[in-house]
Each structure stands twice: as structure tokens, then as C-alpha cells.
Lab assay of single mutants.
Amino acid sequence: TRVETATETAWISLVTALHLVLGLSAVLGLLLLRWQFPAHYRRLRHALW
């Protein structure tokens, strides 16, 4: 049971790290898009909202 718990903890930390990385890359990508294509971003936002 001790090994299982350790594996579970490792998986949880791995998944958390993955989610953090994905979230950060998504935010960075959005910022980059907004910085590179302001007109396109505004049009996209206008279409979405």
C-alpha cells in the first residue's frame, strides 16, 4: 500500500505540473497572438462576444 500511495502522489504531481505547463503555454500563446495580431484579435473577440 505504501508503494501504491507513492505512485499515486507521483501521478498527481505529474498531472498538476502538466496542467500548469499547459495553462501557462495557453496564456503565453494568447498574449503572443494579441501582441502580434491586434486587429485580428479584436475582430476575433468581437465575433466571440
Rank of each mutant, 00 (worst) to 15 (best):
T1G: 05
T1K: 11
T1P: 07
T1I: 13
T1V: 13
R2F: 11
R2E: 11
R2H: 13
R2V: 11
R2T: 12
R2L: 12
R2K: 13
R2G: 09
R2D: 10
V3W: 01
V3H: 05
V3S: 04
V3G: 04
V3C: 05
V3F: 06
V3M: 07
E4V: 14
E4H: 14
E4R: 12
E4T: 13
E4W: 12
T5G: 03
T5Y: 01
T5R: 04
T5C: 05
A6S: 14
A6L: 06
A6F: 03
A6E: 06
A6T: 09
A6H: 02
A6W: 07
A6V: 01
T7Q: 12
T7M: 14
T7S: 13
T7K: 14
T7P: 12
T7A: 13
E8Q: 02
E8T: 03
E8V: 00
E8K: 07
E8G: 03
E8A: 01
E8L: 04
E8H: 02
T9G: 12
T9M: 12
T9V: 13
T9Q: 10
T9N: 08
T9W: 11
A10M: 07
A10D: 02
A10G: 10
A10H: 09
A10Y: 07
A10F: 04
A10K: 08
A10Q: 11
A10W: 07
A10P: 06
W11R: 01
W11T: 00
W11Y: 13
W11H: 07
I12K: 09
I12L: 10
I12D: 01
I12T: 09
S13C: 14
S13E: 05
S13D: 07
S13A: 14
S13L: 13
S13V: 13
L14E: 02
L14C: 05
L14V: 06
V15Y: 03
V15S: 03
V15W: 04
V15D: 01
V15N: 03
V15C: 01
V15K: 00
V15T: 03
V15L: 10
V15R: 02
V15A: 03
T16A: 10
T16F: 04
T16V: 14
A17D: 04
A17V: 09
A17F: 07
A17Y: 03
A17S: 07
L18G: 03
L18R: 03
L18M: 05
L18Y: 03
H19F: 01
H19C: 05
H19D: 05
H19M: 01
H19Y: 07
H19I: 01
H19N: 03
H19G: 07
L20K: 01
L20T: 04
L20I: 11
L20R: 02
V21L: 13
V21Q: 01
V21S: 13
V21H: 02
V21T: 12
V21A: 13
V21G: 07
L22T: 12
L22P: 03
L22K: 01
L22F: 06
L22C: 12
L22Y: 03
G23T: 11
G23Q: 06
G23K: 06
G23A: 14
G23R: 02
G23Y: 07
L24D: 01
L24P: 07
L24T: 05
L24M: 09
L24S: 01
L24N: 02
L24Q: 08
L24K: 04
L24W: 00
S25L: 05
S25P: 03
S25W: 02
S25R: 04
S25H: 05
A26T: 10
A26Y: 06
A26Q: 00
V27F: 12
V27S: 09
V27R: 05
V27I: 14
V27K: 03
V27M: 14
V27G: 10
V27C: 11
L28S: 06
L28A: 03
L28I: 06
L28C: 05
L28N: 05
L28E: 02
L28T: 02
G29N: 04
G29Q: 08
G29A: 14
G29L: 14
G29Y: 05
G29W: 08
G29T: 13
G29R: 05
G29E: 03
L30T: 08
L30P: 06
L30N: 04
L30R: 03
L30G: 12
L30F: 12
L30V: 09
L31F: 11
L31Y: 13
L31T: 13
L31G: 04
L31A: 14
L31C: 15
L31N: 02
L31R: 07
L31M: 13
L32G: 03
L32C: 00
L32D: 04
L32A: 14
L32V: 15
L33P: 08
L33T: 06
L33S: 00
L33R: 06
L33K: 08
L33I: 07
R34V: 00
R34K: 15
R34C: 11
R34Y: 09
R34A: 03
R34T: 08
W35C: 14
W35T: 15
W35V: 15
W35L: 15
Q36T: 15
Q36E: 15
Q36Y: 15
Q36W: 15
Q36C: 01
Q36M: 15
Q36K: 10
F37A: 09
F37D: 09
F37P: 00
F37K: 00
F37Y: 14
P38N: 13
P38A: 15
P38K: 14
P38V: 08
P38L: 12
P38R: 14
P38Q: 15
A39S: 12
A39W: 10
A39N: 11
A39H: 11
A39V: 15
A39I: 07
H40C: 13
H40E: 10
H40P: 15
H40Y: 11
H40M: 14
H40F: 11
H40S: 08
H40R: 13
Y41K: 01
Y41A: 15
Y41P: 06
Y41E: 08
Y41S: 11
Y41V: 15
R42K: 14
R42Q: 14
R42S: 09
R43A: 13
R43W: 08
R43D: 05
R43F: 10
R43V: 08
R43I: 10
L44M: 09
L44H: 00
L44Y: 03
L44R: 08
L44W: 10
L44S: 07
L44F: 14
L44A: 14
R45P: 04
R45W: 01
R45Y: 15
R45E: 00
R45C: 08
R45T: 09
H46W: 00
H46R: 08
H46A: 00
H46P: 07
H46C: 11
H46M: 09
H46Y: 00
H46V: 10
H46T: 02
A47C: 15
A47F: 11
A47G: 10
A47S: 09
A47K: 10
A47D: 10
A47M: 08
L48R: 07
L48W: 08
L48A: 01
L48E: 13
L48C: 09
L48I: 15
L48V: 08
L48P: 00
L48Y: 14
W49K: 11
W49L: 02
W49I: 13
